[in-house]
């Protein structure tokens, strides 16, 4: 367990220390995140895995400065996070492309807001789009694209202003299984090329194992991290990894943990 006073380790990028999120509702306070501590090293790909409604998205938004922290501390690059920063890129569950902008203009939207030089970033936007296989679609409008293509554009938008950290909130959960596998490969591709620190929230065990260096398993009650599992599958990974013994063993270990923590939650009285 990390103590509050411990200095940031070299190479440490995100660090949560007993972070709490408590919502006031009509039925009384609800603990969405209950004293979570973890850390992510620079360039590491970490997945937060948990059942739906366990507070993992809230935790991610707290890391991005988009949700206030009730108690405890989350620091990014050594400084406690209180509001969103331009060193962090966020991907949401929906692609959130603006319907009246073309794909290229959507990717350039952060550049527009941040008043960065347009010319050089335009080249970068086109490069990113071609990397995810969207060249030729620059002037299409979002409604002309499939769900997978929209999320590809959203990846480009999150990377165009070159943030150091990428926070992803179940970005592919609304897609069908086949598209989802394609998106995972596209994401790995782009991540290897740019090596960002990545924090990826998902409820899919296979997705977490396929993508991450480390998987943090999150429990529902209390909403806290119950396990921190390293994924020693060598990179670069491709879909054939999914058939290896190691991959499937890791998956069943994680499944066991989620089921175990579920049972434990059912055995104790509901968390008041």
């Amino acid at each position: 367990m990390l103590s509050l006073s411990e200095p940031a380790l070299p190479g440490e990028c995100i660090r949560a220390e007993k972070a709490w999120k408590i919502y006031d509702t009509a039925k009384g306070p609800v603990e969405a995140v209950a004293g979570v501590s973890f850390s992510v090293r620079r360039g590491e790909f970490v997945a937060i895995l948990g059942p739906s409604g366990c507070g993992k998205s809230t935790l991610l938004m707290m890391c991005g400065g988009l949700e206030a922290i009730t108690a405890g501390r989350i620091s990014v690059d050594g400084a406690p996070i209180a509001c969103p920063r331009t060193s962090i890129g966020v991907m949401f569950q929906e692609s959130t492309l603006l319907p009246w902008k073309s794909v290229l203009d959507n990717v350039m939207f952060p550049i527009e807001l941040l008043h960065r030089p347009r010319r050089e970033h335009m080249a970068r936007a086109r490069e990113l789009l071609s990397l995810v296989g969207l060249s030729g679609f620059e002037s299409h409008k979002p409604h002309q694209l499939s769900g997978g293509m929209r999320q590809r554009a959203a990846i480009c938008r999150a990377l165009v202003y070159d943030p150091d950290i990428l926070l992803m909130d179940e970005p592919f959960s609304a897609l069908d299984a086949i598209t989802r596998d394609e998106m995972n490969d596209a994401l790995l591709d782009i991540w290897t090329r740019y090596t960002k620190t990545a924090l990826f929230v998902t409820h899919s065990i296979r997705e977490a194992v396929y993508l991450a260096d480390r998987v943090l398993v999150m429990n529902r009650r209390p909403a806290t991290i119950v396990a921190d599992i390293a994924i020693p599958i060598p990179r670069p990974r491709d879909p054939s990894v999914g058939e290896t013994k190691l991959f499937n063993e890791l998956c069943s270990t994680l499944r066991g943990m989620i089921e175990h923590s579920h049972r434990a939650a059912r055995d104790v009285t509901p968390y008041a």
Binding site: G64, G65, P84, T86, G89, V90, F92, F109, L113, L114
Partner: peptide, 9 residues
Amino acid sequence: ALRLCRSLT
């Protein structure tokens, strides 16, 4: 979309 704007400061 509003949240995206916030994340982009």
